Amino acid sequence: MKKITAVIPIRKGSQRVVDKNLRPFAGTNLLTIKIEKLKEVKGIDEIIVNTDSEQAIEIAQKMGVSFHRREDYYASSKCTGSEFFEHLGQVTDTDVFAYCPVTSPFIKTETMETAIHRFYGEEEFDCISTVSVIKEFMWLDGKAINYNPLNAPNSQNLPDIEALNFGFTLINRNDLIRYRNIIGKKPKFVRTTDIESIDIDTPLDFFIAEQIYIKTVIEDKSLLD
């Protein structure tokens, strides 16, 4: 069986939500939540926190998982996404790379285990990633891109556009380095529920996610079903 390593990328200099990865969140923090959840997932052989943050390293050590101290350039805004993904592959000794950002705190253990099972069981694709389904009237550069304004459908009849939500992604390490991206040439997408799809990217996202986490995880876990 191939080795699967879950990599948690943490940058101390997050810009839009200051220190979102480590700041208090529902009595804990997003990094701790992610490590605890990944420890539950059958099939993951190692968890690595890839970071330039000493606080994140301390949390990793306290929770008994590995860490990689990221070089300054790869934690800066000068580093492109492609450079970053290629570097993650180069510094991670594994067969299969699992990309697991902390900003998706609601991805279920079952969803990740299903993704792992399908990654091993179906050979027609080279990566598997969680996505959200978008049904919105979308425009780009002054033009509608998913419907005809002269014959507008009801919103429920819009095409299902799948958007990466980065909750959980699996790709072979060699492909990650080759493509310089966590998405391969033949991706398989796994649709997640509305709550699972939440990705914290703005201060409003952070606030809403924290309230949902308190309500669904701390107060009433049944609401996640």
Rank of each mutant, 00 (worst) to 15 (best):
I47S: 02
I48T: 12
I48Y: 07
V49T: 06
N50C: 05
N50D: 04
N50T: 01
N50V: 08
T51N: 08
T51L: 09
D52M: 06
D52T: 10
D52N: 13
D52V: 07
D52C: 08
D52F: 00
S53F: 03
S53M: 06
S53A: 07
E54F: 04
Q55P: 01
Q55I: 09
Q55V: 10
Q55E: 15
A56K: 01
A56R: 01
A56V: 06
A56P: 02
A56E: 02
A56F: 04
I57Q: 09
E58P: 02
E58T: 11
E58W: 05
E58A: 15
E58Y: 05
E58R: 14
I59K: 05
I59A: 05
I59G: 08
I59S: 09
A60E: 04
A60G: 12
Q61D: 14
Q61N: 15
K62R: 15
K62E: 15
K62Q: 15
K62L: 12
M63P: 03
G64C: 12
G64P: 12
V65I: 13
V65M: 11
V65K: 07
S66Q: 14
S66V: 09
S66P: 05
H68E: 07
H68D: 02
H68T: 11
R69F: 12
R69M: 13
R69Y: 13
R70A: 08
R70T: 13
R70Y: 00
R70G: 00
E71D: 14
D72P: 02
Y73D: 12
Y74H: 10
Y74L: 01
Y74E: 05
A75M: 09
A75I: 02
A75K: 00
S76C: 11
S76G: 12
S76N: 09
S77A: 14
S77L: 10
S77P: 01
K78H: 05
K78Y: 01
K78F: 01
C79M: 13
T80Y: 04
T80Q: 02
G81V: 14
G81C: 13
S82F: 12
S82Y: 10
S82P: 01
E83R: 08
E83C: 10
E83S: 04
E83P: 05
F84S: 02
F84R: 05
F85R: 10
F85D: 01
F85G: 01
E86V: 00
E86A: 05
E86C: 04
H87F: 14
H87S: 07
L88N: 08
L88M: 15
L88P: 02
L88K: 06
G89K: 02
G89Q: 08
G89Y: 03
Q90Y: 01
Q90I: 11
Q90W: 00
Q90A: 10
Q90P: 01
V91D: 07
V91K: 04
D93F: 11
D93K: 15
D93G: 10
D93S: 14
T94E: 00
T94V: 06
D95M: 12
D95V: 11
D95I: 11
V96N: 04
F97C: 07
F97G: 02
A98C: 14
A98R: 12
A98H: 14
A98G: 11
Y99Q: 10
C100P: 00
C100G: 01
C100K: 04
C100L: 03
C100I: 07
